[in-house]
Amino acid sequence: MNRLTTLCAGALMLAGSAAMAERYVMITHTQGTDPFWPVVEKGGRDAAAAVGAEFEYNFDASGDMAGMAKLIEAAAASQPDGIVVSLPDAAALGPAIKAAVDAGIPVITMNSGLESSKEVGALMHVGQPERDAGFAAGTRAKAEGVTKGLCLNQEAFNTALVDRCTGYFDAMGAELNQIDVSNDVTQIETRTAAALQADASIDGVLAVGPHVCEAANKAIKSVGATVHLACFDLSPGVMDMIEAGDAAFTIDQQQRLQGYMPIIVLHLYNTNAGLLPGANIPSGPGFVDASNAASVKEQAGINR
């Protein structure tokens, strides 16, 4: 009888522990054809596993901000221990995030929205300063001979991507020359080819997403242009392009950290009386080029 009582008590303790497990929800603004986000999601899942928490990942496949706001509202209604959210459009997403914070749910923004993170009530932000990253890309492109650039933006609503393009042209002392190309790789290729054919003086292209860069490379080859191509983020295809000399470099913002670190910080915040880092966590930018591509290639699309 004593043994049975002990076993039952142990089972109840385990059940109680399981019931008390932390639960975190991550919501991002797109997934679809972009190879960037599965690495972010993996980072979140890895962090949750490391701290013994439950993890949910949601996104609005259309990239619609109203749809994303509803996902944030639904997550808040489920009363998780924390929400991690990308913030491409603070005006559209801010009210839902503020409502979650007002309900006592800690929120960390990541990837996009650094400048608006505090004003929507988030604890902090994990990601790279996007204009600075674009400026670094433009500084290097100019040093490598670019005189007239073109920036390809696949998400016109995303302020972070506009900041990348803006920084690129600010570094070159030129006006913004950006075209919106969507996330459809066929459309990216078509619009890029058309832009290059319309202006033969363009000798530099910045693609602010890895799939965009791969499609841009096809467009450049299809029209026979000689163009300095620079990318943002890593994918196996981008790494192959760098090794082949088709792309000069890519900006690495270490997206696994953008998924991993918010979960770790929320866990520490919830279990250590509000423990927080003293500042936002910059996950980038860093350059990957021919000098170091071999060392990170195997991680592209997995952890980088």
Rank of each mutant, 00 (worst) to 15 (best):
A47R: 01
G16Q: 15
W37R: 12
A53G: 03
R23T: 14
A50G: 00
M26D: 13
M20G: 07
G32S: 15
V51C: 10
D34Y: 01
A53K: 02
F55W: 05
T33H: 05
G32P: 15
T33Y: 05
T28D: 13
A47N: 06
V39A: 01
G16K: 14
T28R: 08
V40H: 06
T30C: 07
M26T: 15
A18L: 15
A48T: 01
P35F: 03
E22Y: 06
E41R: 13
G32K: 13
G43I: 07
Q31A: 10
D46W: 01
H29Y: 06
E41N: 07
Q31I: 10
G44A: 07
V51H: 09
R23Y: 03
E22H: 13
G52Y: 00
G44P: 12
V40G: 05
M26I: 11
V39N: 02
A19W: 09
G52E: 01
G32I: 11
D34V: 06
Y24N: 04
A48H: 00
E41C: 00
S17W: 06
G43Q: 08
R23D: 10
V39Q: 02
T28V: 15
E22M: 12
V39W: 02
G44M: 06
A18D: 12
Q31P: 06
S17C: 14
F36L: 10
M20Y: 07
I27R: 10
D34G: 01
E22I: 10
G16V: 14
D46C: 00
D34W: 04
V25R: 03
R23H: 13
G16W: 15
T28K: 09
D46M: 01
A21D: 14
D46H: 00
V40N: 06
T28P: 03
F55A: 03
A53F: 01
G16R: 15
V39T: 09
E54K: 10
W37I: 07
H29D: 05
P38H: 09
D46K: 01
M26R: 11
A19F: 09
G32Q: 14
I27M: 09
V51M: 08
A50H: 03
V51N: 08
G52P: 00
A18K: 08
T30W: 06
F36M: 04
G16E: 13
E22V: 09
